[in-house]
Nucleic acid binder design. Structure first.
Lengths: 211, 211
DNA sequence: TCTTTATTTAAACACTTGTTTGAAACGACT
DNA sequence: AGTCGTTTCAAACAAGTGTTTAAATAAAGA
């Protein structure tokens, strides 16, 4: 038996509700009653609502980031071995693909991804920083890779473009592939696989555009 | 004297706080005490907190959308007159540039833009729909324009790419040009003007990329 | 077995939330 | 003057918030 069954049940419920209703719009009572736990157990196991969010984030983001970091580093070292600059596409794939595989790995993971996707535009600075702190090193590594891949472009331009990329990635993440505009007057949306292909093409062209 | 001074003071305060702290994290007491109004005046003038949000949004978004719609339609009719497809760049400019001019028009407008920028990833569906309903016709018009500009690309692919664009635009809008990652280890960010130039280049390349 | 630690529970706490009330103050009009 | 519709105000309302408490229960070790 794991350290505490209720502890992970609370994590699961919090993940789900934080993702679907937002952090401030989710009460501890909603979480505990969803997973059949006592209200006080949240503060017993986690200490506070903020600490619960922290735990929800770290449980999934730490391992995910480890995978993404390893993949990006692999691209970088391989390029260094071959004495050629890394390709933007390889870097993008290393960053994006693990996220999607992870998103498909479990139903809770999908909620989590949309939670992370919304983190960039989270108004509450305390909440936002919970995410940013964990994402920043990866962001930095990716920027470094892009500088090697596109040495003819100034760093601050690459920084701006990388942030444009973060914008679309976080949008795709928090919509979970579905469109917010569900309307019969619009063409039917792409399936997830081709949507990702398109995302890669779109971002690739944007990042590599002439200055 | 306008219908009620407090009414617009409340709108201003709500706009500012909704943008900076988020809708659910802003209390009516915070708004009224910020602008020196009585708590009950919100319900007197607007009826409810939700209706206040609605009013905040409509006050600025209706005129802004009118401008954007006019500019896009102008591009479309001019292209039809010349019997040539509209250019993607002209469409993009018609969509993006009015937003930025508007954003610089007053300090409150800047807050408002970041509020709108976050709307796409707003977790609360009721809140999100306040924005989407107003943005949808414009979105549809822009898609139609893109279909004319890039007739060799399938509509559903253009739809996906337009949503990617919305992701980066809303990111730029809600950060207000500033980066979330403010760190000395990063290159210094672009000034706003060149950031917009870069955004146009980035989006243009992404939208026009081969299928 | 008894003892000690870890966990769960119901109840209460102090506080904030959006909303409503009814009286007071104001402004414009005759 | 006084009347009428509009606006402001302090106070209260009921409901919901995160957190704490102290007792009850379960689990584990000696």
């Amino acid at each position: 038996m794991p350290p505490s069954d209720t502890k992970t049940r609370i994590l699961d419920g919090a993940e789900r509700l934080f993702a679907r209703e937002g952090f401030h719009n989710t009460s501890l009572r909603a979480i505990t009653s969803l997973v059949g736990a006592n209200l006080a157990s949240v503060n017993y196991h986690f200490g506070s609502k903020d600490a619960l969010l922290q735990a929800v984030i770290e449980r999934r983001l730490l391992p995910l980031n480890q995978i993404r970091e390893a993949k990006i580093k692999e691209v970088l070292t391989r390029a260094r071995e071959d004495n050629t600059p890394p390709t933007v596409e390889a870097l993008l794939r290393a960053f994006i693909e693990p996220t999607l595989e992870f998103s498909d790995s479990s139903p809770g993971a999908r909620d989590f991804i949309s939670l992370v996707g919304r983190s960039l535009s989270e108004p509450d600075e305390t909440v936002r920083n919970c995410f940013l702190v964990l994402i920043f090193p990866l962001f930095q590594l990716l920027l470094k890779g892009l500088c090697e891949a596109l040495p003819h472009l100034p760093q601050n331009i690459l920084l701006a473009r990388l942030q444009f990329l973060m914008g679309t990635v976080s949008y795709v993440m928090c919509t979970g592939g579905r469109s917010f505009f569900s309307n019969t007057e619009l063409p039917s949306p792409l399936d997830q696989k081709t949507q990702i292909q398109q995302l890669l093409k779109y971002a690739l062209a944007g990042l590599e555009a002439a200055e």
